[in-house]
Write a protein that binds this DNA or RNA. Structure first.
Lengths: 159, 159
DNA sequence: TATTGTTATACTCTATAACTATA
DNA sequence: TATAGTTATAGAGTATAACAATA
């Protein structure tokens, strides 16, 4: 007996009406799709989402300390240490002891790091253009404001 | 020397303008916030997101096979087996060999499973009301349609 | 005493390969 | 041969504890 009468597009075989009612379910599903596409996009550059983000913020805030980048990236410091190690081994970042505090390291991009970031950024922009096509600038702004509202509601509840 | 001049609300210490330009970053950030809140909400019932979703779809499609539930939940069958085991050990689901195919199991909720699901559903609805407060029904509909569009763009690109 | 960065570790989520019992 | 479910396992991602060096 074949029960493939349930086939639907989009990876789901069946529309689960109960699950469908939860907005969070859709946000999570969309987020997973974006992550899958972005991860694939970044693989070409030997980058992961977090290492790409790290290069991005290290370029933007060149010279800040490792622990501050961990805060910006919202990751724990032990995990940041591993990422910094990875990026340093690839010669994409410089890690220099700060004169004012010999425990700390100031991070910045190497020319190679900047080059990789530039190419990867183009690919990520193309990835976003692909996934977000059909969304007008006004829609996008409105959409973002709702995302903002939700995260604000979350963090306010944690105070 | 204290560099805490960077402190901002919302868990981020600094507004990373480059990261901020990527819509995917905001979706991911919001999704993580929702997941954190939902996971905490479900802990009270000894449920995780995936076990809650499983109970929900097993109630909705009572009697379907394990592998079909895996498809609906968009998880791999080995992972489904573990989840089914967990739910069965808690006596929240029945797992019955199907007469037509002795390899397969039909899943359904026990009365205990239904009771847990009912209570947990209320808590999840409260969680959503909390996180999504301030979003009008029209906003919500529009927001959902954009999420739909993005996932459609993703799955179309995979054809 | 507190903080920066490190190491080790552990837990969750997810994916794959290989097995068994049926079909 | 193919499929349903299982087992074992491996890889991410993420979190905590404990440590050395420095403040």
């Amino acid at each position: 007996m074949n029960e493939n009468f349930l086939k639907f597009p989009h990876g789901t075989s069946l529309k689960a009406a109960r699950l469908d009612q939860f907005l969070g379910y859709h946000i999570r599903r969309t987020s997973k799709a974006i992550q899958a596409d972005l991860s694939k996009t970044l693989m070409e550059f030997d980058l992961r989402m977090i290492t790409f983000s790290a290069l991005l913020v290290i370029e933007e805030f060149s010279g800040l300390r490792q622990s501050q980048f961990a805060e910006i990236l919202e990751i724990e410091r032990p995990n940041m240490a591993v990422i910094v190690d990875e990026l340093e081994n690839k010669n994409w970042i410089n890690k220099e002891k700060t004169p004012s505090d010999k425990r700390a390291y100031a991070l910045s991009l190497t020319p190679e790091g900047r080059a990789v970031l530039q190419e990867a950024s183009k690919a990520v922009e193309a990835h976003e253009a692909r996934l977000f096509r059909g969304i007008s600038p006004e829609d996008s702004t409105h959409f973002r404001s709702i995302l903002e509202l939700i995260t604000t509601n979350y963090y306010e509840g944690k105070l």
